[in-house]
Write a protein that binds this DNA or RNA. Structure first.
Length: 202
DNA sequence: GTATGGATTGTC
DNA sequence: ACAATCCATACT
C-alpha cells in the first residue's frame, strides 16, 4: 500500500483523473479508517473550462485552494446540503482539480453505514448498500468529509489516497454530469469511471 | 445589505 | 418531476 505522493497530483488534470480510478480514499476518523475505492471522477481543467469554478482564473476565497500546490483537498458545499470533494492538480498557480464522484466502500463500513443511514451495515438492504457512496454528495457523507477537510494535505495522515496495486480493466468515458450552464464545455468528455463497476453513480 | 443559484439527493 | 436548504458570490 503506497500513499500517493505530490508528484502524482501535479500532472495534467485529465491524466491524474484517469490515474485516480482504482485508488483508495482513506479518511481517519477517531480509531476508524473509512475507505473507498475510487470508481468515478470528473476533471475540472481550470482557466479554459467553463464548468470549472476557476474558469477564467476566477480567484475567490472558495477557489483559492485550487490555485495552491497540488495534492490538497478542495471541498465545497452544493445546494446548501451536500459537500463535494476534489483533488487539486497541476502546478501551483493553475486552478484545476478532479472531482471524486463515486466510491466502492472497502473499509470502515460499519461507520460508513451509520454516517449514511444511522443503522448497522447488517441491517442494510441491497439497494442501500449500492447507494452508500455512489455519488459525490453521498461519498462525503459516508466518509464524514466536510468543510473541515478544506485544504487538507492528501499526502498527510488524516485524509489521503493509497495505491494497492489494483488494476483498472476498462475505463468508461462520458461528458460530465449536471453542468448544462457550461456551454461548449458541457460536451467535453471529462468524466471517467470503471466500466461495469456497480458503485458508479446513476 | 440584498439577491441569486448551484459539479446533488431523496422523495413524490 | 421537484423540493430541500444555505453559503459563497455578485450585485446595489
Amino acid at each position: 500500500m503506497k500513499k500517493l505522493t505530490k508528484s502524482f497530483y501535479k500532472g495534467d488534470t485529465i491524466e491524474v483523473a484517469k490515474g485516480l480510478l482504482g485508488k483508495i480514499l482513506v479518511h481517519k476518523v477517531g480509531d476508524a479508517e473509512l475507505m473507498g475505492r475510487i470508481v468515478e471522477v470528473e476533471a475540472y481543467v481550470g482557466a479554459v473550462d467553463k464548468a470549472c469554478h476557476c474558469y477564467n482564473n476566477k480567484r475567490t476565497k472558495r477557489t483559492e485552494v485550487m490555485f495552491g500546490p497540488p495534492g490538497h483537498a478542495y471541498i465545497y458545499l452544493i445546494y446548501g446540503m451536500y459537500y463535494c470533494m476534489n483533488v487539486v492538480t497541476e502546478e501551483e498557480g493553475e486552478g484545476a482539480a478532479v472531482l471524486i464522484r463515486a466510491l466502492e466502500p472497502i473499509g470502515g463500513v460499519e461507520e460508513i453505514s451509520v454516517n449514511r443511514y444511522n443503522k448497522p451495515y447488517k441491517d442494510l438492504d441491497k439497494r442501500q448498500i449500492i447507494n452508500l457512496s455512489n455519488g459525490p454528495g453521498k461519498l462525503c457523507r459516508a466518509l464524514n468529509i466536510t468543510k473541515n477537510n478544506y485544504k487538507d494535505d492528501l499526502t498527510g495522515n488524516k485524509l489521503y489516497l493509497l495505491d494497492d496495486g489494483y488494476k483498472v480493466s476498462v475505463i468508461g468515458i462520458s461528458n460530465r454530469i449536471n453542468i448544462d450552464y457550461a456551454e461548449e464545455a458541457k460536451d467535453f468528455k471529462w468524466r471517467f469511471f470503471i466500466d461495469g463497476n456497480p458503485y458508479v453513480s446513476k
